[in-house]
Design a protein around this nucleic acid. Structure first.
Length: 288
DNA sequence: ATGACTGATGGTATCAGA
């Protein structure tokens, strides 16, 4: 085992050292880019992230603080709307194409919400998404509430698109705030989440459809049995009690999974002053 | 305990988030 040189106190852990032929990709629900820009940029620098997908920017594109990112060496592509939702990508590597909006199906519900951005880079396709929350599940008549129907419809569109992208035989990666708790081990108390849209059987079934079509939850694949969360509610001292849930994910098709060299969730930003309620999830991919 | 956060909004309360 190599030891750090004398006098060097802060080396990255060995699994975070990134050779030049690798890309570090991350996803972070920032909960307002206006409030979080400085913290996000500081994290981009300290984490050596090449491409960051952001969600809940809550900003129209003309108000996105892109100049702050440019000054730090990151170019911004954003797809926002007023008040709610909003996705963006910050990159310090060249992108070949950027597309926004998740494709519709013939029977899809109308969708004006800014929740999807997709890029081509280094022969790969990578997407950042903000899945609808889906609550409440039921309306007053006991039927599916329109918000839950919208979530299921959105997942159906995502699954169709995920399968369509597989036909390219290229590496494909989806990351973002999925608003899905994949398993009981991904929350502090399963009983609290039973019946919630994030852990509803129909939500989990749609998530498994994505898994069965070839996409891997790379955090869980590389860290089996590890308890790690990506969201802690602002209320009730959830952070202090570690009452968290793992709902931010990186999903890779087989070609991309083969290139995964490391995966992690960085809890540090969640513990900082005026933090987002989510913390970043990241992975390192070999470029060939 | 009708509580308990945080952010955005032509707002001084209401929504949405999860």
């Amino acid at each position: 085992m190599l030891l750090p040189p004398a006098g060097v106190e802060r080396l990255l852990p060995s699994d975070q050292i990134k050779p030049s032929d690798q890309l570090k990709i991350a996803s972070w629900n920032v909960n307002s880019i206006k409030v979080r820009a400085e913290q996000v940029i500081a994290w981009l620098k300290s984490s050596e992230t090449d491409i960051l997908f952001m969600q809940e920017t809550k900003s129209v594109d003309e108000n996105f603080p892109a100049a702050l990112f440019e000054a730090a060496g990151y170019h911004i592509h954003c797809h926002g709307q007023k008040t709610y939702n909003g996705v963006a990508v910050a990159t310090r590597v060249e992108l070949d194409d950027v597309r926004t909006g998740l494709p519709m199906l013939a029977d899809s519900m109308d969708d004006e919400q800014a929740r999807y951005i997709e890029v081509d880079c280094s022969g790969m396709t990578m997407a950042g998404l903000y899945m609808p929350n889906g609550n409440p599940v039921l309306d007053e008549a006991g039927e599916h509430h329109p918000k839950f129907t919208y979530k299921l419809d959105w997942m159906k569109r995502l699954n169709h698109h995920a399968i369509a992208l597989q036909k390219g035989k290229k590496p494909v990666l989806f990351c973002g705030d999925f608003n899905i708790i994949p398993n009981a081990a991904d929350c502090w108390d399963e009983d609290v989440w039973k019946g919630d849209a994030l852990y509803h059987p129909e939500t989990l079934a749609a998530f498994r459809t994505m898994c069965w079509s070839g996409y891997t939850d790379v955090f869980r694949a590389i860290h089996p049995g590890v308890i790690a969360y990506s969201f802690w509610d602002y209320q009730g001292g959830a952070w202090q009690k570690d009452n968290g849930i793992r709902i931010d994910h990186i999903m890779t098709n087989p070609e991309a999974t083969d290139r995964v060299r490391a995966v992690g969730i960085d809890k540090t930003p969640r513990g900082q002053e005026r933090a987002s309620d989510h913390t970043p999830v990241w992975c390192v991919l070999a470029q060939s």
